[in-house]
Computed example of a mutant assay.
Amino acid sequence: MPGGLPVPNKKAIEWTLLLGLALRCEIPLRSKFDRKNYFYPDLPKGYQISQYDEPFCINGRVSLPGGDVRIHRVHLEEDAGKLLHKTLEGSKVSLIDFNRAGVPLVEIVTEADIHSGEQAREFLKKLHQIIRYLDISDADMEKGSMRLEPNISVRPAGETHLPAYKVEVKNINSFSFVKKAIEYETDRHIGYLEKGEKPPLETRGWNEAKGATFTQRRKEDAADYRYFPDPDIPPIVWEKVYIESLRKQLPELPDAKKERFVKAFGLSEYDASQITDSVERASYFESAIRAAKEGPFATPDITPKAIANWIINKKADETMEPAQLIQTIKTSTSVEEVSDAVVLKAIASVTTANPKAVSDFKAGKEQSKMFLFGNVLKLLKGKGDKKRIMELLQEKLK
């Protein structure tokens, strides 16, 4: 508002520091805000409050199966407005939505450790998961709560230095779109380089309908923005004890939770990854384990593995009470007992009706036994202990 002075959002700063700690960043004890000067319709005051050379968090990393991706910095800035390109009354116009302008926005910048669209997708999914675990944002990309902006350049095979150019693709709202945009840009850059030309430094957008990027504006560098310390916001100095108090607030993060589930519950790496995919699913899983051990539906013989399978295979709606899930598993896995006499009668009926399968088994064709076994189960309508049924069938076939 005209005449208003900026006031840093304490909670946004605290959440930025928590994110930095979760990404294993260093937290410098001194930070400041700067003015980033540029003219664009989505920023009518002509500058953005951001951080230039003293961000809140530096030198972190995210571990992936293919290796670490280093985090260069995590800084806080204000969001700009949203441009909407429309056709009104036959004329093409650009509208501006200022509802999100001035809202705190955290920006995470990686080092040049990502070498493919697929690796970028994996990194972003992991980052999204960590943010959701911290509960500092819903990171809903459809609503613009998390926006993805890859910077892309290509270097000839054998070279080790970074190319002297980069192209940024702005405001992508899907992991798969990021992958496609990187792959498209990589091919486009190679086309330039093979002709002995350097791709132009520019900012581009992604058009999913066309499966292609498009030019938005030329790429600025730091000198173009004429950064200087914001005179209305004093530098921020932390005490180590405060940073450590924030570190103690960190929840159990996805990788640590996955490792614990493997060790404590005997889950496979795959099952543990699926269960810890979201903090809500992981919490539901542990609540179900407690329900299996205690309470009115306690069933100690239902294993964590069985519970995980039900959740992973979506047999259980996570809106179902954990105790109800345990009761459902118990009911579905309980076996209605039948006497040996009933089983033997069913076996006799199946073997009489399938003499060729019996003779094939006796001739050494093991699969014939499974054919007979399946028909016995079908005749018994799933009742009876399968292990006992197989024992009686084998005795009959001797």
Rank of each mutant, 00 (worst) to 15 (best):
C25H: 00
K378H: 13
I136F: 15
L127K: 08
A363S: 11
G211C: 14
R70F: 06
G117T: 10
E26C: 12
V103A: 11
I326M: 05
D230T: 04
K240L: 08
C57H: 01
F56I: 03
L246A: 10
Y40M: 13
G117D: 13
S359T: 13
L393M: 15
L267C: 06
K315S: 05
I58M: 08
T352F: 14
G117M: 06
Q327H: 11
P296T: 07
G191D: 05
L397A: 15
W206H: 03
E159N: 04
K257Q: 07
R70L: 12
F265P: 00
S349C: 10
Q48M: 12
V343P: 01
L43V: 09
R226C: 05
G46S: 11
E294T: 15
E321K: 11
I307T: 13
F33G: 02
A316N: 00
Q274F: 13
E183F: 00
V241N: 14
K305H: 03
N354K: 13
R281Y: 04
N37E: 10
D140S: 11
A112D: 12
S283F: 01
T87R: 12
S50T: 12
P44V: 01
T331K: 15
M390H: 07
L267Y: 03
N309R: 11
S116L: 09
E111S: 03
I233A: 10
V237C: 15
W206L: 05
A181C: 10
G20C: 08
L17G: 01
P6C: 09
C57N: 08
P231Y: 11
L380V: 08
F33L: 05
A353P: 11
E142R: 04
R218Q: 04
F297W: 08
K180N: 15
T213I: 05
D230R: 07
L344I: 05
R204A: 12
S334T: 13
R260L: 01
A223S: 07
K263N: 09
L17T: 00
N37Q: 04
G384H: 03
Q129G: 05
Q216R: 07
F33R: 01
E159D: 10
E239C: 09
P150A: 10
T87M: 13
